[in-house]
Structure formats: C-alpha cells, structure tokens
C-alpha cells in the first residue's frame, strides 16, 4: 500500500462543495426562500418607513439590498452553520481529511454565494420596478460582489471557529441588527452621528456598500480610493484570520 498522492485542490473543492450542498439539500429550498425574501423585505420595508423616496434615496435602497443579502450570508449564516458543525462534531472530523484548510473556506463560500445569488438578482429587479429606477451594472460588479462575499464569510468563519458555538450564534444575531439598521448601506453615511461615521471609516461594511453601489449605478456613485484600500485590507486580513482559525491546534 502506498501513500495517496496529494489530490488536486480544485478537484477537492468540487467534491467539498458537493458534500456541503448535499448535506444541506433538505434545507436548500428554505434557505433560497429566505435569501429571496431578505433583499425584497429590505427594499419594501424601508420603502414603507420612508414613504415616497426621491431618486437618490431610492437608489440607496435598491443598491443596498444586495449588499445586505451578501453580508448576512457571510456574517450570519456562516457562523451558525460552522457553529452547528462544531457542536455536532463533524467539523473536527472534516479537519482530519487531507484537504487544504483554504478549500474548506472556499467550498462554504461557493455554496453560500450560490444560495445568496438568486435573492440578490431578484431583489434588484423588484427594487428597480418598485421605485422605478434604472440600474446600469458594469462587469466588475461581479468580482467585487464575490470579494464582498468572501470577506464577510471569512469574518464569519473566524468568529465561528474561535468563539464558543453559543456566543458565535448570539454574536451573529446581534450583527444582523447592526448591519440592517446601523450601517450606511441603505442610506448615506452623513445621516449618522460623527462618531459612527468615523467608526465606519475603518470597518469593511461601508466600503462594501460603496463598491456594489458604484458597480450597479456607476453614473450616480463613485468609490473613494480609501474605500478600496480598506476593503482590500479587510478581505486579506479576514481570509488570513479564517485560515489561521482553521489551522489552529489546541
């Protein structure tokens, strides 16, 4: 008997995606439904709060919805599922498989991004119709959306690996509220108090919203150079943190 050769990582990625998808197959319709509802609820719900928004406000609502969908998958769904896998013991066993740690992260990212995708597109269509705004998406919104997804999922992964499952779940619940109401995703940052604006200047969420917004409505929005830098730094740091958390040995 000889030691098995190192399997190709891309092949393992496909197999891991298959494993994770099949394990969730019974819940998939529900996840898809929720991911369809989140952006629609954001658009319709904020629309109710605001009444008849002007064009700028409407654009914020419509372009903010996909950001909320992508972030909620990464920051909320990922910690919950990783926490569950930890609690039931499957995460530790999976970690004994000869799979590069990055592949675990990527496989989950692929599964959750695919689950979030229909909601993102549906939310944009509903928003454009509801508020009668025209979007002009540019090609780079796709890789940028993936980077946003990756950053959020990596942060979620690190939270779930480092904190106890209960704390991670609570943390993710709190994050939903913070992301929905207290971050400048669906409204301009200048409506927030000064200290909150300064805090958000260092957090990844506002840059995430800015890049998606500019990618969907390039005629109306631009991205400050600083935001690209902040987002890139968070993306790199969060992936490194998730990688560290997965490689950690007690």
């Amino acid at each position: 008997m000889t030691a098995l050769a190192a399997p190709a990582s891309w092949r393992q990625l496909g197999l891991m995606v298959q494993w994770q998808t099949r394990r969730q197959v019974r819940n998939l319709p529900l996840f898809l439904l929720i991911q369809l509802l989140i952006p629609v609820a954001t658009i319709v719900g904020f629309g109710l709060l605001i009444g008849h928004p002007d064009r700028a406000t409407a654009l914020y609502l419509v372009t903010g919805a996909p950001v909320i969908a992508l972030i909620s998958v990464g920051l909320v769904a990922t910690p919950q599922f990783v926490g569950q896998a930890r609690a039931e013991g499957s995460l530790d066993w999976m970690r004994t498989l000869p799979v590069p740690r990055e592949v675990f992260l990527l496989a989950d990212l692929v599964v959750w991004t695919v689950i979030a995708l229909p909601g993102v597109v549906f939310g944009l269509v509903v928003g454009a119709l509801r508020f009668d705004v025209e979007l002009a998406p540019v090609w780079w919104v796709v890789p940028v959306a993936l980077a946003v997804s990756l950053t959020a999922a990596a942060v979620g992964y690190a939270i779930a690996c480092v904190m106890s499952p209960v704390v991670a779940q609570l943390m993710s619940q709190v994050l939903v509220f913070v992301v929905l109401l207290f971050t400048p995703i669906s409204f301009p940052a200048d409506r927030m108090p000064q200290w909150a604006q300064e805090t958000h200047a260092w957090l990844p969420i506002e840059p995430m919203a800015q890049v998606i917004r500019a990618g969907l409505a390039p005629g109306d929005f631009t991205v400050p150079g600083r935001s690209w830098v902040v987002l890139a730094a968070w993306c790199a740091a969060s992936v490194l943190a998730a990688r560290w958390a997965l490689r950690r040995r007690g």
Binding site: Q12, L15, W19, R26
Partner: peptide, 25 residues
C-alpha cells in the same frame, strides 16, 4: 471518530464514495 459524523442528506454509499475521492482516490 469516536462520535458518529453526521451525514444527514447523504446516503451511506454517497458518503463513502465522496470521502474516498476527497482523500484522493
């Protein structure tokens, strides 16, 4: 592992085959 790894959503055959391929078979 000592505790059974939950494989909800998979059949025994699929689970065994997928692990074999993930391990490089």
């Amino acid at each position: 592992a000592q505790a059974n790894v939950p494989i909800t959503g998979l059949t025994p055959r699929t689970a065994i085959e997928l692990v074999g391929r993930i391990r490089g078979g």
